[in-house]
Design a protein around this nucleic acid. Structure first.
Lengths: 115, 115
DNA sequence: GGTTTATTCAACCAATCGGTTGAAGAGAGA
DNA sequence: TCTCTCTTCAACCGATTGGTTGAATAAACC
């Protein structure tokens, strides 16, 4: 199967699914409740929720004939961790480069700095 | 065209492209340098880089007949912002709920709390 | 100018995706 | 049990995706 990180990023690449995540961040809801605002069929929303579930972003808890859908914030955290890591790395490198350039342009106008 | 956020999440859903991002976080590189470690053709890597570029995650600067590829950390930031926002929201709600439950189980054992 | 090097463009292919319709489960209430 | 409600399963369809091969472009070097 495809990696959880693959699946999580892929899941959030669809605007409908991001919208569902945004809705679920407010609170748990049934499939029907989640589907109501959309023009598309409830089956389509069910599929979207399955994609989110396969990525671990969401879990379903049966409640009578309904399924209560719950957002797993831990899974979101794992995503931010990945992105944060490389964003930070790139930023640090950039600011380090800027510092070097700054020190060069500071040093250059001065008289006779060695080597 | 598809939204930048769509494109960015979709771009990072592929392990090869995440790998390229990880590599570029260390420093800029040409297409050829980036392609070298992989088994697949350079055209495939070029396509992957185009996907990253279309998502705004990467830019290319011509340098003679080469293209120097650069990671745009700002674009990564916009991703973390989105995920962070909803992760935080869900976590806050959760801890608020926990607080309510805690206050209930504290209050319940006490004698005769009204209504 | 001709050759080499670095990259892209174009066409193609199998696989996956986002949506549909229609049928099947499964729990609740009469 | 029969029915109603909520959700899923299955098959299908057009569009997109990740990869390939082969040709085109474009700058650098002789």
């Amino acid at each position: 199967m495809t990696d959880q990180l693959d699946a999580a990023f892929a899941a959030l690449s669809d605007p409908t699914r991001r919208d569902l995540v945004a809705r679920l961040a407010i609170g748990d809801a049934t499939v029907g409740e989640l589907a109501a605002p959309y023009e598309m069929t409830i089956q389509a929303i069910s599929k979207h929720l399955n994609v989110l579930a396969a990525a671990g972003l969401v879990t379903k808890r049966p409640q009578a004939q309904r399924r209560l859908v719950h957002l797993e914030s831990d899974a979101l955290r794992r995503l931010t961790d990945w992105v944060e890591h490389y964003a930070r790395l790139a930023e640090q490198r950039y600011s380090r480069l800027e510092n070097v350039l700054a020190s060069l342009t500071e040093a250059a106008p001065e008289e006779g700095n060695p080597s």
